[in-house]
Design a protein around this nucleic acid. Sequence first.
DNA 1: AGAGATTATGGCACTCAGTACCCTCTGTAA
DNA 2: TTACAGAGGGTACTGAGTGCCATAATCTCT
Lengths: 223, 223
Amino acid sequence: MRDVLAEAAFALFLERGFERTTVDDIVSRAGVGRRSFFRYFPSKEDAVFPDHERCLADMTAFLEAAGDAEPVDAVCDAARIVLRMYAANPEFSVQRYRLTREVPGLRTYELSVVRRYERTLAGYLERRCDGARDGALRAEVIAASVVAAHNNALRSWLRSGGEGDAEAAVDHALGIVRETWGSGAGRPPAVPAADGEVIVMVAAKGAPMWRVVQQIESALGER
Amino acid sequence: MRDVLAEAAFALFLERGFERTTVDDIVSRAGVGRRSFFRYFPSKEDAVFPDHERCLADMTAFLEAAGDAEPVDAVCDAARIVLRMYAANPEFSVQRYRLTREVPGLRTYELSVVRRYERTLAGYLERRCDGARDGALRAEVIAASVVAAHNNALRSWLRSGGEGDAEAAVDHALGIVRETWGSGAGRPPAVPAADGEVIVMVAAKGAPMWRVVQQIESALGER
DNA sequence: AGAGATTATGGCACTCAGTACCCTCTGTAA
DNA sequence: TTACAGAGGGTACTGAGTGCCATAATCTCT
């Protein structure tokens, strides 16, 4: 029944637009009572995102099971759960994206959903950084970075009409975040016992941090 | 008149709560017609944030005038404009914060406002990184980081009841972002001509990037 | 099977935000 | 004075969302 309603709603939204479709239109197409609509969806907007609630639960469960994995890696992997939900139905996702772009009410609704993902990630990071200096701050900033990177890649995939490899695009975007916030987010693990190998780096004074990191990483990669 | 309405609305929201206050209540306290309310505020929520529109315009103007300042510094300074708006009326800001925490509709509205700030910052960064590798992606991630850091500090100041130095808290939070995304965001400037001074760093293989950056910075700071 | 309880669904009436349309009042220019 | 413009006010309407109750389907226990 939930599915019937969501399908009827989405079809009508595509035909006449979101705002020019009333709840009465939806329930009459679905052949159910008006009251039932609000039993399954607290608002008209919810019918456009019928699967986010479950996805959020998946993400929460994933992070609870994440154990002692590297925290930034864990939240990046958690973000990929969302991507996979979109990628599972490319046509639907693309149509919904176009709809959302045009309807301010849906944009706002989507923001509130994204915020919940972000809070979930930040909460996990905060737990993992418990007690570290600026733990909560770092957790929120990293979560925001992960979400922004994920959404940037996701949206450009959606804008392209669902062509190309969404996973690869998101991997690349998240790669930048991981490079930057690396494995030191939160409780910095003790520097692992080196096997004697060291890096010697020479950089000009005033060189931007970002370049420094890149140079170190490429040096590590070339070995 | 706008001010009269906003004041009447806010007073009632504090007394009875946001949802239990109707627009009719507001206009009758303000002594104006119902229709006039919607002339000044497109929605009931807007009456709670009467100054964001102007603040957004200020931010846009600031960034337009920013010229060739270091981009990350510029967006951090732009974010401080928002802080100053809050800090200008601590009592009001704190009360509004408490109200917003409790009313889902206001939280959502606030998200849409925050998003507009973020888009403004990201747009500026994108223009400044024009053509750089992953320019748009970096711009969005940096903007999200700045907003998250700013909001984290702002909110903890608001939670404390407006005590303490908000500017200092935000400076510290933004400092972390600047350390991280440094002056390399976007079009990385040519490494400045060094005056012969170099840094030599030794780190264990596998050391987290974040620690590496910290060590370099503390070495720079100790000189 | 059948009484009783529980749950899903439908219907009705209501509140209230937001909008379209039109009216009045006030000030200004010719 | 008339012509006009623009700010404010009033009325009626649409449509989302809610509370309440009636009804049908399903489950449970004996």
